[in-house]
């Protein structure tokens, strides 16, 4: 079942109230063809449970790893993902677009 934004932020609140460490990742900027629009959320708890998405599954793994650090030290981070590889551009594989994701802890 697809989770709507309602479910996602409500779950984050539930997790936090249950005493878990929780991080919220939000797509804050996109360039080119990005799979999820600006404002999309992924919420992560300290045990690695997550809900929602910030991409079509391409960068979630990395965001979740960074979310653990955010839960640990409490400092928000902005992460950028994209096709930075020159070769990819040269052969025209710019399909990935670029996204910027803001990851913050729920205090």
């Amino acid at each position: 079942m697809l989770a709507s934004d309602d479910d996602i932020l409500a779950r984050a609140e539930d997790w936090r109230k249950a005493g878990k460490g929780v991080a919220i990742a939000t797509v804050i900027e996109t360039w080119g063809s990005a799979p999820r629009p600006v404002g999309s959320h992924l919420v992560i708890d300290g045990d690695g449970n997550f809900l929602g998405s910030v991409s079509g599954g391409c960068v979630e793994g990395d965001v979740i790893t960074q979310a653990f650090d955010v839960i640990e030290d409490g400092k928000p981070r902005t992460i950028e993902f994209g096709v930075a590889d020159e070769t990819a551009w040269r052969v025209g594989l710019s399909c990935g677009g670029r996204i910027r994701v803001y990851v913050e802890k729920v205090n």
């Binding site: 309602d6 932020l9 409500a10 936090r16 802890k105 205090n107």
Partner: peptide, 25 residues
């Protein structure tokens, strides 16, 4: 994000009220 802000967002959604969270990135 403060828990109170997250709660405010969720509460507004349930109550059908518009709300904006402003973040200094």
């Amino acid at each position: 994000m403060k828990l109170e802000h997250l709660s405010a967002l969720n509460k507004a959604r349930v109550e059908r009220r518009a709300i904006i969270l402003v973040t200094d990135v």
